[in-house]
Computed example of a mutant assay.
Amino acid sequence: MTTPRDLMIIAMDAAPEHTVEQGNLSLALAGAEVIDLLTAQAVRLEGEDIVPGYRPTLGDRLLEEAASSLVREAPYESLDDWLWRRGRGLSSAYLAALEGEGQLTRQRRRWMPFRTSQTLIDSPDHRQAEDRWTSDEPVLATLAASLGIRDKRTGDPPSVADDAVTTVLAAVHDALTELEAERQRRAIEEAAFDNVWRGE
Rank of each mutant, 00 (worst) to 15 (best):
R186A: 09
D36C: 05
V71R: 13
E101I: 09
T3W: 06
R106S: 13
A15W: 04
D194I: 09
T177Y: 11
Q103W: 05
Q128K: 15
D194M: 14
P75I: 02
L169F: 04
D122K: 10
R55Q: 08
L37G: 02
P158V: 10
E17I: 13
G59Q: 02
E21H: 07
G199N: 08
P113I: 06
S26F: 00
R109S: 09
G89E: 11
R44M: 05
Q107A: 13
R44H: 06
G102A: 11
N195C: 11
Q184I: 12
S159A: 14
S135C: 08
M12S: 01
L70P: 06
V168A: 02
G102I: 10
E46M: 03
I149D: 04
Q103K: 07
A141P: 12
L29K: 00
D81N: 13
G102T: 09
A11D: 06
S69V: 00
G31Y: 01
D36F: 01
L79N: 04
L169M: 05
T39I: 08
L83W: 10
L104G: 07
G31A: 00
L25I: 00
S69F: 00
E17D: 12
A67H: 05
P56G: 03
F193T: 15
R186P: 07
T166S: 15
R106N: 11
Y94K: 03
M12I: 09
R109I: 09
A28V: 00
D13T: 12
I149H: 00
V172N: 05
W133D: 10
R86A: 07
E21R: 11
E130R: 14
A145T: 09
D156N: 15
L147P: 10
D156Y: 11
A164L: 02
I149E: 06
A30N: 01
E178F: 05
L45C: 04
R44P: 00
R186F: 07
K152R: 15
M8W: 07
E73S: 08
D131R: 14
D80S: 14
Y76W: 09
Q128D: 15
E33C: 08
L45F: 00
T119C: 11
D6Y: 06
E33A: 10
A66I: 00
P158N: 08
E189W: 03
N195Q: 14
G59A: 00
V51S: 03
L37T: 03
Q22Y: 07
E101A: 14
L83A: 08
S117W: 10
E101Y: 10
A74Q: 09
A187L: 12
T166H: 13
N195M: 13
A40G: 08
S117M: 09
L79Y: 04
R88W: 08
E178S: 10
L37D: 01
S123A: 10
R85E: 12
G199R: 07
L27N: 01
V160K: 00
R44I: 01
D36P: 03
L143F: 03
A28Y: 02
V20F: 01
E182Y: 06
E189A: 09
L29Y: 04
E65Q: 08
T39H: 08
L79V: 05
G53T: 01
P124R: 07
L176A: 04
I50W: 02
A96S: 15
D81T: 15
A67K: 04
T57C: 02
S68R: 11
V20W: 01
K152A: 15
A97L: 13
M12T: 04
P4H: 06
T3V: 13
Q107T: 15
G89C: 05
A164D: 14
E73G: 03
A67M: 08
L176E: 05
T105S: 10
